[in-house]
Design a protein around this nucleic acid. Structure first.
Lengths: 105, 105
DNA sequence: CCTTACGGTAAGTGACTACTTACGCAGCGA
DNA sequence: TCGCTGCGTAAGTAGTCACTTACCGTAAGG
């Protein structure tokens, strides 16, 4: 959850959404150093958002649909609850506006 | 975007999803002080995720469906792109594995 | 072999930020 | 008017974290 809270990590994910890439490729398209990218990738990997595959001396990173789906479902519940809750919010606000200055129970 | 990156702010949002609440109410249910909640609410307000209404001396905060929808749509595009991209990822991985070792379809 | 390429890790640093206490201000009731 | 309640803001601090450079292991190629 906090894994997608960082802008650089979102940028990395967006790159990986287009195609899998090695560490150096990612670093080349980002304003940070290669070790920084490595560290971000470790966080993303622990969050099950990416997977890595050794290809010769290079290491190819790719989106992990497993973890992505989990995070997606979390936010899905969040938003749907938000919209469902909004109706109650609107009602309550209407109540409050109707009786400003009045205390409920 | 960074607004939902903080755990305390997510907690505040989850409280507001259930019902609108005043600052003290929120602070009472959280392990942080009331001013801290105020500061978080300011961030959420600037992110258009909550709205506030003065009711007497109290200030009622509620979910702002406008901003929520925007953020929701951003992630929606993100996830769908992630899943769509995964097919390409799987294909590419299969290609790469073809040169190293075969795997199941 | 030895060399080169690629990448993970260690260690250190700077900046951001979430939090605290202290203070000031507006609205309501007595 | 006076006191009380509820909040926002200022100021200061501690901890987190993103980033850097330096170093080391590993895989391919001569």
């Amino acid at each position: 959850m906090d894994a997608v809270g960082d802008g650089t990590r979102r940028a990395i994910l967006e790159r990986l959404l287009e195609r899998p890439a090695a560490v150096s490729e990612l670093a080349a398209g980002l304003p940070v150093s290669r070790p920084a990218v490595s560290q971000h990738l470790r966080v993303l990997k622990m969050a099950r958002l990416v997977t890595d595959t050794q290809v010769g001396t290079r290491r190819i990173y790719a989106i992990d649909p497993e973890g992505v789906r989990e995070v997606r479902e979390y936010w899905e519940r969040f938003w749907s609850q938000a919209l469902a809750g909004f109706k109650a919010v609107a009602d309550t606000e209407a109540e409050q506006r109707a009786g400003i200055g009045r205390k409920e129970s």
